[in-house]
């Protein structure tokens, strides 16, 4: 048997965004940032368990709704209450 004919099926996985799909579909409550109130402290960014908040160049947080599960942590940790959780529209 020649090496050229040979390949293995190994239990090896590659890093991917969305390894289990778009977890945004899990969401029941949706976080909405009030950018007027936001002080760009970054607490929501560091505590989001789903890495679904990005900080832009100027540290403005931006929620990635493709993956945000709507846990509400960002809203809970925000010191100025700039993030509101709103019920998702069903359907």
């Amino acid at each position: 048997m020649e090496m050229a004919d040979f390949f293995h099926i190994m239990p090896v996985s590659k890093p991917s965004v969305g390894a289990v799909g778009k977890t945004g579909t899990w969401r029941v409550f949706k976080p909405i940032i009030d950018h007027e109130k936001c002080t760009r402290c970054g607490l929501c960014w560091i505590y989001c368990p789903d890495e679904s908040i990005e900080l832009k160049e100027d540290d403005t947080p931006k929620i990635n709704y493709d993956f945000c599960k709507g846990c509400g942590i960002c809203s809970d940790v925000c010191p100025v209450k700039a993030i509101k959780m709103e019920a998702e529209e069903i359907g």
Binding site: H8, I9, M10, P11, V12, S13, K14
Partner: peptide, 18 residues
């Protein structure tokens, strides 16, 4: 890379075959 992570019935058998 990650080795030996959760593998569903869809893929497991081929690894045993290998």
């Amino acid at each position: 890379l990650t080795y030996g992570s959760l593998t569903l019935p869809e893929h497991y058998m081929e690894m045993r075959y290998d």
